[in-house]
């Protein structure tokens, strides 16, 4: 119960920051539109099954869509992220023992390098899909790639800051 309440609170916090802050700030540059809300899905506990994970991803994206007036856009991207997450964790962390099964992905539970790779790849997949859906056109492939990379880098920077601020106690994987 405590766990569920904490997860809900965290989701609300991420959505609030994303929808009420990041989405409203006028873009600094056409290449720079950072987002951080994906981190919530990346922080979900390991033990969550694939089906609940997909459900949560879909609903989470849908709620954000309600705020950004883009029905289906973030829902689709978050569902994709939720679908890819278990596979990526399996590759990066082959030995998922009972103990770590109760915790969340973090530097402490995964190791610094696998965790960083996990964050980077998930953000990249997510941004590629999101931008593709938004444009429905690869158009200028170079422009597309630059936009994906800059947005991903900026988002990752924001995630690192969040990580440092809210998870400084986080070697044991708790917020």
């Amino acid at each position: 119960m405590n766990d569920i309440a904490r997860q809900l609170l965290r989701a609300v916090a991420f959505l609030a920051v994303e929808a009420l802050l990041l989405d409203r700030v006028p873009p600094v540059h056409r290449f720079l539109s950072p987002s951080i809300y994906l981190l919530y899905l990346l922080w979900l506990p390991f033990r969550l099954g694939r089906l609940p994970l997909l459900g949560i991803g879909f609903l989470y994206g849908l709620v954000l869509d309600m705020f950004t007036h883009t029905p289906g856009l973030h829902a689709s991207a978050c569902t994709l992220a939720a679908f890819l997450r278990p596979y990526l964790i399996q590759v990066l962390m082959p030995r998922l023992d009972e103990d770590s099964g109760r915790s969340e992905p973090s530097i402490g539970s995964m190791g610094a390098f696998p965790y960083a790779t996990y964050l980077a790849l998930m953000t990249l997949f997510h941004q590629v899909w999101l931008l593709f859906l938004e444009w429905l056109d690869l158009g200028d492939a170079g422009y597309f790639a630059i936009k994906v990379v800059t947005t991903s880098v900026l988002s990752l920077t924001l995630m690192a800051v969040t990580e440092a601020v809210f998870r400084n106690r986080g070697l044991e994987g708790r917020t």
Binding site: R50, L51, F58, G61, G72, S76, L80, L133
Partner: peptide
């Protein structure tokens, strides 16, 4: 999992 994924994607894309 893949089936649910496809269903949810279909739902999101149809909304989109």
């Amino acid at each position: 999992a893949p089936i649910l994924f496809l269903l949810l994607q279909a739902a999101s894309l149809s909304m989109l």
